[in-house]
Amino acid sequence: MDLRRVMIFRSVARAGSISAAARELGWTQPAVSQHLAALEREVGTPLLLRGPRGVEITEAGRLLLARADTVAGQLHLADEELAAIAQLRRGSVRLAAYPSALATIVPKAVAAVHHRYPDIDVTLVDAEPPEALALLERGDIDLALVFGYDRSTDLGLGLRRRSVGAEPVHLIVPPTSPYAAGPVSLVDLSGEPWIVGCERCRSHLLELCREAGFAPIERHTTDDYVVRQNLVAAGLGVTLLPEAALTAFRHPGVVVRPDDRFGRRSISICYRDGADLVPACAALLGELHP
Score class of each variant (00 low, 15 high):
G139H: 15
V164H: 07
D154M: 15
G156H: 08
L159Q: 15
G139E: 07
E167C: 02
E199F: 11
A181Y: 15
Y149K: 07
L159A: 11
L155P: 06
P183T: 14
V146P: 00
V173T: 08
S190N: 03
P130H: 03
D154R: 03
T176L: 03
S163L: 08
V169T: 04
G156Y: 13
E199S: 15
P178V: 09
G165Q: 12
L171C: 06
L143F: 10
L136Q: 02
P193N: 05
G156R: 05
L133S: 06
G158A: 05
A134K: 07
A134Y: 01
L135I: 04
E167K: 09
D142Y: 08
E131V: 12
S190H: 01
P175W: 15
P178M: 03
D188K: 01
A144Q: 04
Y149H: 14
R162K: 13
A132V: 05
R138K: 12
S163W: 08
R161F: 02
E192V: 00
Y149M: 14
D140H: 10
R162P: 09
A144C: 06
A134G: 04
G148H: 14
E199M: 09
I141H: 08
R151G: 00
A166G: 02
S152R: 01
L145P: 14
L133A: 10
H170R: 13
A144F: 01
G165C: 13
G197V: 00
V164S: 11
R160F: 04
D142M: 02
D150R: 07
G139K: 13
I172F: 11
V187P: 06
R138V: 10
I172K: 08
A180F: 11
I195T: 10
L155W: 03
L145Y: 14
F147N: 08
G165W: 10
A180E: 06
G197H: 00
L171M: 00
L136P: 11
V187D: 15
L133D: 01
E199V: 15
E192M: 14
A144I: 00
R138T: 14
E192R: 12
L136G: 02
I195S: 10
T176D: 12
G182S: 04
L143K: 09
G165K: 13
L157C: 05
P183L: 06
L133E: 09
L186R: 15
L189E: 06
E137P: 03
P178Q: 09
L145W: 10
L145H: 10
S190M: 04
L171S: 01
